[in-house]
């Protein structure tokens, strides 16, 4: 079972190597002649003013929080969806298995409607 994952580990290592090697290669081959103008942050030719790591819109947080909610919901849907055919084919749990997930989704939808009407999804 676990040895099936060995090629995946190797593949991830190869991926990382491909992420690192070109930069090392570029570092070795390419010229390196920095000067103050070249290293200044790009700002359409102006001198950079303020720190670039500035305050940003709170809506990004909101999006992040909503994303976590929905993504978790999907993570819970995965195992259920994987055996849904079996649920459908097992008479004893057929309706319960279906109804339970619909209730789960319904609760999500309630929150979704709330977020929508409260304007959390607006992006002006």
């Amino acid at each position: 079972m676990l040895e099936n994952y060995f090629p995946i580990l190797l593949f991830i290592l190869v991926g990382i190597a491909i992420g690192v090697l070109p930069i090392v290669l570029g570092w070795l081959i390419a010229p390196n002649r920095p000067d103050a103008e070249k290293l200044s942050p790009y700002e359409c030719g102006f001198e950079a003013f303020e720190d670039a790591r500035m305050k940003f819109d709170v809506r990004y947080y909101l999006i992040a929080i909503l994303f976590i909610l929905f993504d978790l919901e999907i993570a819970f849907l995965f195992p259920w969806a994987t055996i849904f055919k079996e649920i459908v084919n097992t008479e004893a749990v057929k309706w319960f298995g279906f109804a339970e997930m619909m209730v789960f989704i319904a609760i999500l939808v309630v929150g979704y409607i709330y977020a929508w009407v409260k304007g959390a999804l607006e992006w002006e």
């Binding site: 055996i83 079996e86 649920i87 097992t90 004893a92 749990v93 319960f96 298995g97």
Partner: peptide, 8 residues
């Protein structure tokens, strides 16, 4: 498997 499931 699913036949063991007890509906609460």
């Amino acid at each position: 498997m699913l036949t063991n499931f007890v509906i609460p």
